[in-house]
């Protein structure tokens, strides 16, 4: 008798010994656009978009802060620091379409969402990268990566810590008894005249710009808008943007510590023109309207 068996095309194949299982399984696909966020490429995309939003905010924030160099101006018939006028303008955005402060909160909501998504995508990609891991026993000779690209996770975490402190310090006013809602110039000068806070501010801003440098550099690639023409400009754009922010932001504590930016109260009897002339404000105007807390915060400054 021939020892033969019927054709069985599934049992004769031994599993491939050398192959191995995926490190992770693909999950069931969610409906659009959530499915984008299920993949690492999609997460990078989200990280890039939210990063761009946050860079936009940082630039706006810096430009707004430049107002502190303008000192006191005449505004609605009284003298006020330009900084404070700008803060009030922000609170009044889209008034009367929306009640005072509402649009500001919408902006803040958007920013908060961006921050959360940026951090979450960072967190989950970092976990993925660590799990995909490498374990070289010898020292690796880096050729293309730089301090900025390799320190993203650390610079990001330190900047986040600073932002939390910064909000408590200058938005909520939780760190100082002298904090006055809406008196932005006064609050900023009070805070940054403290060398410790100024030092933290400077270090955090340097890291922020290092972070932004690699962020801008990467954004073209992550969004897939790169091409050889853009590539030539990538490093230049990243340097310009992060350098501009660095110069602007670091100038504030330096100027305050150097006494170039001040907050001065002056004799209540001085006229508006005299206040502008003397670069000081009549402080009485402020204390009285601190009843409306939620609306009088400066926009995260």
């Amino acid at each position: 008798m021939n020892k033969r068996k019927a054709v069985n095309l599934t049992s004769t194949v031994s599993p491939q010994k050398s192959g191995h299982k995926p490190l992770r399984e693909t999950k069931k696909e969610l409906p659009f656009p959530l499915n984008l966020y299920q993949s690492a490429v999609g997460k990078k995309w989200v990280m890039a978009i939210t990063g761009l939003m946050l860079v936009g905010f940082v630039i706006g924030h810096m430009v707004g802060n430049l107002k502190m160099y303008l000192g006191v101006l005449e505004h609605d018939g009284s003298a006020a620091y330009d900084m404070d006028i700008y803060a009030e303008f922000l609170r009044n955005l889209l008034v009367p379409i929306l009640p005072e402060g509402v649009f500001l909160w919408i902006l803040r909501g958007g920013l908060l969402t961006a921050v959360i998504l940026h951090i979450h995508s960072f967190y989950s990609l970092t976990r993925l990268n660590i799990a995909s891991g490498r374990s070289y026993e010898s020292k690796q000779d880096w050729l293309a990566s730089n301090f900025a690209s390799r320190s993203m996770r650390y610079s990001g975490i330190i900047v986040l810590a600073y932002i939390i402190f910064h909000i408590l310090d200058l938005t909520v006013g939780a760190t100082s008894d002298e904090f006055v809602h809406g008196a932005v110039q006064s609050n900023v000068v009070n805070s940054l005249s403290n060398p410790v806070i100024a030092g933290f501010y400077i270090v955090a801003n340097i890291l922020l710009c290092v972070h932004i440098f690699h962020g801008i550099f990467s954004v073209f690639q992550s969004l897939g808008v790169n091409n050889p023409n853009i590539n030539r400009m990538k490093r230049g754009i990243a340097t310009a943007v992060s350098g501009l922010i660095l110069v602007g932001n670091v100038s504030f504590p330096v100027a305050i510590l150097a006494g170039a930016v001040e907050y001065n109260e002056c004799d209540p009897k001085l006229s508006v023109a005299e206040q502008v002339e003397e670069n000081c404000v009549n402080s009485s105007g402020h204390d009285s309207d601190s009843d409306d807390d939620s609306h009088s915060e400066s926009e995260g400054y």
Binding site: P22, R24, A40, V41, L125, L128, N129, S132, L143, S218
Partner: peptide, 21 residues
């Protein structure tokens, strides 16, 4: 291909080491 890649490998953080290697 992208989704299969992600089952096995990490995510790109644009270092550029791959090109150098």
């Amino acid at each position: 291909m992208v989704e299969t890649m992600e089952q096995f490998f990490g995510a790109c953080t644009n270092h550029g080491e791959c090109y150098e290697a």
